[in-house]
Amino acid sequence: MNQKLKIMVVDDEAIVGKRLKPSLESSGYTVETFGDGRSAIARLSKERFDIVITDVRMDDVDGMQILEYVRANIPQTKVIIITGYASVDLARRALDKGAFDFIAKPFKPGDLRTVIEKAARAPSA
């Protein structure tokens, strides 16, 4: 890896960001965390991220909207969906909208790391 991957974590559960940030940083990524969709999109419009990890169910702007925004504006960025409300339906919807992967909560940081590595290796769409 010639360059540090930039990762954004969006989840209204503060603890998710709090724990994922150090965990992912220790794996050599740059991580920024956001607690709501609106500020995440504001940040995305200014800064390029390689990977966006987002929760689905959030008040106001939700994960699906972030996914749509990313696919429409920065298609090279990969989006990984993490949700506690996982279902076949939701998974298919997310993938249909172009999510890179779909992970059900609860997950271990290790699971996420594997997916991030996979995303880093995958050719950008």
Binding site: A91, R93, D96, D101, I103, D111
Partner: peptide, 13 residues
């Protein structure tokens, strides 16, 4: 080829 049916972490699990 439909992306809805792509394998993902959730479905593989």
């Amino acid at each position: 080829a439909d992306s809805r049916f792509r394998a993902n972490t959730f479905s593989v699990n």
